[in-house]
Amino acid sequence: MSISDSIKNFLHAEKLTPSDLARMTGYTPQYIHEILSGKKRWNETTIQKTCEALGLEISVTKRKEDEIGEKGGVVV
Rank of each mutant, 00 (worst) to 15 (best):
E65H: 07
M1S: 11
G38R: 02
D5G: 09
K71C: 09
G55K: 06
S2D: 11
K8W: 01
E67R: 02
S19Y: 05
L16Y: 08
D20R: 00
H12F: 09
T50M: 04
A13Q: 15
G38A: 09
E14L: 02
I47F: 02
I7T: 07
D66T: 14
D20Q: 04
E57L: 08
E14A: 14
T17F: 03
K49C: 08
I68K: 10
K40D: 09
M24Q: 11
E57V: 11
T50S: 07
I47T: 12
T28I: 07
C51R: 03
L54H: 03
K39S: 05
S37K: 12
K64S: 12
I68R: 09
V75Q: 08
V60H: 00
P18D: 13
V60S: 03
D5A: 13
S4L: 02
I47H: 01
N43R: 10
H33R: 04
G69Q: 07
K62C: 02
A53Y: 06
I35M: 06
I32H: 01
I47E: 10
A22D: 08
E34T: 08
L11Q: 01
F10G: 01
I68D: 02
I58M: 10
S59G: 03
L56N: 02
H33D: 15
L11C: 06
G26C: 12
L21G: 04
L21W: 06
N9F: 09
T25F: 01
I58Q: 05
I35R: 04
E14I: 00
L56Q: 05
S6W: 04
I3D: 01
D5V: 07
V75H: 04
D5N: 14
E52C: 00
F10M: 03
D20V: 01
N43F: 07
L56K: 11
P18L: 07
A13R: 14
K71V: 12
A22G: 08
S6D: 04
K39Q: 09
H12T: 15
M1T: 11
G72F: 07
D20W: 04
G26V: 15
T46N: 10
E34M: 12
S59N: 10
E34D: 15
I58N: 00
I47N: 01
H12K: 15
I32S: 01
L16V: 07
S2W: 00
S19P: 03
S59R: 15
E57W: 07
S2N: 12
S4E: 13
T28H: 10
E70M: 06
E57N: 11
K15I: 12
T61H: 13
P18I: 05
E67T: 11
T25W: 02
E14K: 15
V74A: 14
K49D: 13
K62V: 13
S2C: 05
R63F: 01
Y27D: 05
S59T: 09
I68P: 02
G38W: 10
L54S: 04
R41C: 07
Q30N: 12
I7A: 05
T45G: 08
I58T: 13
L11D: 01
G26D: 09
K15F: 08
E34C: 08
E57Q: 13
Q48L: 13
S19I: 09
E67F: 04
L36K: 03
C51I: 00
K40G: 03
V76W: 14
L56F: 04
D5Y: 07
E34L: 12
